[in-house]
Write a protein that binds this DNA or RNA. Sequence first.
DNA 1: GATGAATGAGGGTTCATTCAT
DNA 2: TATGAATGAACCCTCATTCAT
Lengths: 229, 229, 229, 229
Amino acid sequence: MARTKASAWKKRRPGTTGAVATSETSSPSNVRAQRSAERRDAILKAALDEFAAQGFAATRLDDVARHAGVAKGTIYLHFADKEALFEEIVRTELGPVVRALEQASRAEISFRVMADQIIELFVRGIFETRRKDVIRLILTEGPRFPELAEFYYREIISRVMNTIRAALRRAVERGELANDALVRFPQLLAAPGVMAILWGSLFDRFEPLDVRALLRAHFEILLGQGSAP
Amino acid sequence: MARTKASAWKKRRPGTTGAVATSETSSPSNVRAQRSAERRDAILKAALDEFAAQGFAATRLDDVARHAGVAKGTIYLHFADKEALFEEIVRTELGPVVRALEQASRAEISFRVMADQIIELFVRGIFETRRKDVIRLILTEGPRFPELAEFYYREIISRVMNTIRAALRRAVERGELANDALVRFPQLLAAPGVMAILWGSLFDRFEPLDVRALLRAHFEILLGQGSAP
Amino acid sequence: MARTKASAWKKRRPGTTGAVATSETSSPSNVRAQRSAERRDAILKAALDEFAAQGFAATRLDDVARHAGVAKGTIYLHFADKEALFEEIVRTELGPVVRALEQASRAEISFRVMADQIIELFVRGIFETRRKDVIRLILTEGPRFPELAEFYYREIISRVMNTIRAALRRAVERGELANDALVRFPQLLAAPGVMAILWGSLFDRFEPLDVRALLRAHFEILLGQGSAP
Amino acid sequence: MARTKASAWKKRRPGTTGAVATSETSSPSNVRAQRSAERRDAILKAALDEFAAQGFAATRLDDVARHAGVAKGTIYLHFADKEALFEEIVRTELGPVVRALEQASRAEISFRVMADQIIELFVRGIFETRRKDVIRLILTEGPRFPELAEFYYREIISRVMNTIRAALRRAVERGELANDALVRFPQLLAAPGVMAILWGSLFDRFEPLDVRALLRAHFEILLGQGSAP
DNA sequence: GATGAATGAGGGTTCATTCAT
DNA sequence: TATGAATGAACCCTCATTCAT
């Protein structure tokens, strides 16, 4: 949706995340750039809050601006439109997790140990952070944002799938997994995580779900353990 | 337009279609009632199409009316407002599945056989029908419709969970399942189904997913089979 | 600008001008259609007032709606957008004049007599009506509405030019005009009319211009008359 | 970008370019003043381009600033607001032409010769320059800028009218003109020029108009010549 | 009951103007 | 003096809802 045109005049602040935060010089231009970056981040944060709470369509940029402490027009200095703002949130939020996962999987460890790491990565790196909301937003708004879904598939899903699949294959070869079902369908590994995120936003108030216990149970099954070792 | 097919799988608001089905007279008032019921069904069908394709917020009642072949005002003769229409769709669509599941689980059959039945029930009764869209709508719009989520939890989820849990417990007692992880977290049984529905609407064009194969692989794991015995 | 799409769903009320006004039946649907047509006309009238007073860009549809006595949304029941509204005004306002001119020029009359008719047609049919404003709008907004300019050229200008040219040629052949300059440049015949319209809107308060006298003087020159015969 | 050319035909706000022209010192302040004047000229030039292309309302000061190579805020160092900028363009652009016309009319020459001079003055001094655009802007935006119209009438129109009228009166007295219609309505002399400017911006792509030929034809008529003497 | 024209609040987006640097 | 990020009022357009016919 007018993405090409948008990118022609979209403001690109050079190297925001981190770089600016650690800047120690304070020449006038740097101060400005830092302020600008802070505002941009505030907008992203406020927007994530609103999108997570209301969904894309019901979120009013008025509210985003107010919660970010900026004027409505300021949003448009940083993002072409509401859609671009939404996509930018998704774009920036999940990259680090993928990298962490890829790194974790590089180590030559047993599947059992990796399972623990995956659980902690998911629980602490996603479920207990706002990334949970980002994932939920992709799941729920994705069908209306085909480009976003494509980006997400290409940058996140396929990479995660490849990483996971390789690790699973090694586990099968080592005899840690009884069969190759998971290799053929790595989605099965992730399914409980997706379930946990959706359950949390829908039914937690009726029946809370202990995510960590859920994931542990899941890996018990995968590893063919008895339930009380 | 598909009026007949629609009424074949639609739940009824009490006293409408039923009345018509047994109607023997053809008094003007009965004709009217039937017309009215047909319109109502047409609206529900059209609305499901639109909600599934656009989501709740982006669906325009204008379109619903046009596709249903009625005037916009007519919608308000049958439903209080847009939300009520949405909730009615969700409310009426899944009851039959629950009943079918409850019936299936009543039979004293092995878990392996039940697995096959569950797979077929899911694939043919949900995935290949518009019920898939209803479930997706609950997952994606649910957070903004707390009452709907509550209704859905009470009428569908908890009943399905109980049914499933009982069956799983019997399977554990019979030694068909290695551990009680599934009994503690029946969500794990359903997670691949949820995953399949979401994957279908997000990533199928990049990487198609064979749902039946996915579910079979899932049960292979649950049953601790080798992949190619 | 989205003209094609617009025309796809633009409301067409059948036969507005006159036809409706003379309708004597008052079946419910007719009453509605008439009301609708009246509103449409009120919008067109109010819009012409506003466009003439403020120009296209500075005209607020809020004001148009208020002056037309309708709600803002009502405008969009009749016109796709602000631009379509503007174009419709131009489109409907000048057709009759062209037809009148074509008819007048068909008669076999002397150029002198025709001159009087042209003067009266211009003064009474354009200058003393809101058509003067329509023409001014074309002159002033035309450059930003290429489609409109094209329509106007095709439907009005070229037809008028042809009609005039033929009449002028006859006049030359009859020896009523001293040379064929006007045949080659019929624009010269119309130039004083354009001048009068623009002068009226710009400088009349400083130095009023008697349009009829201006045009008479113009024809005196064209006919090579002494000023006080 | 065309800085030099621009200043060649631009009127000065008092004390800027003049000062620079006679400046012999090269003190920092003089350098600054020159820079400032150059910026101002660049803004005026860019603004004329934009106003001519888009009209007053549709012109964005962002674009003006970009094309002038200055920051948006800089515009406000030189002009109070958008309107002042617009008026300044109109105000400064046409003075030279008036003076040229007044000078030309002072010479005791025949109307026929003067006609040739007027044609060349118009074609080369207006029609083939950006002054054509300025005039068009006055014609099209004037109604929304009453003060501007007044300024324009006082400083340009009335002076031109007086000059022309005097010359026409002499021509009548000399018997060069058949009647005094032009003396009573000097607007008739200018009407083809106005027509040419408007035609050019509206219909030239459908039917090009040879301005010089148009004006010659006009003077043929005024002088009562046969078309091929 | 059924219609669909009319309503009007609401929200995304633009852009002239300001002001801290 | 110059900058350009920030502001926020303004405005077009949408669409759920109403109600006279």
